[in-house]
């Protein structure tokens, strides 16, 4: 079983609260403007993410979600 973190670029307002709470320093603000006119956050170091969900909890805009990914390898394990 693995987890997939996704950031809804269109919902993100680029407030940066998630960046500050991430213990793994995974997140950074993008240089690209989103449709709302904000610079959204992105996973600069996705491999460091341990899916602790603190960013999700802190995000005022429910822009970050983590879903469970069922893959074959985890099924075998």
């Amino acid at each position: 079983m693995s987890y997939h973190m996704s950031i809804d670029v269109e919902r993100c307002k680029g407030c940066g609260l998630c960046i500050a709470v991430c213990p793994q320093h995974v997140l950074e603000l993008s240089e690209e403007v989103n449709p709302l006119g904000y610079f959204p956050v992105f996973q600069a170091r996705p491999d460091d993410c341990n899916h602790c969900a603190l960013c999700c909890m802190m995000c005022p805009d429910v822009a970050i979600t983590i879903t469970e990914v069922v893959d074959d390898t985890s099924a075998q394990a």
Partner: peptide, 18 residues
């Protein structure tokens, strides 16, 4: 401990004006 996180059902899809 890893966990999932998604929008609650009681919250709508609308983007807030905040």
């Amino acid at each position: 401990m890893p966990k999932t996180f998604k929008k609650p059902e009681a919250l709508s899809d609308q983007k807030t004006h905040y």
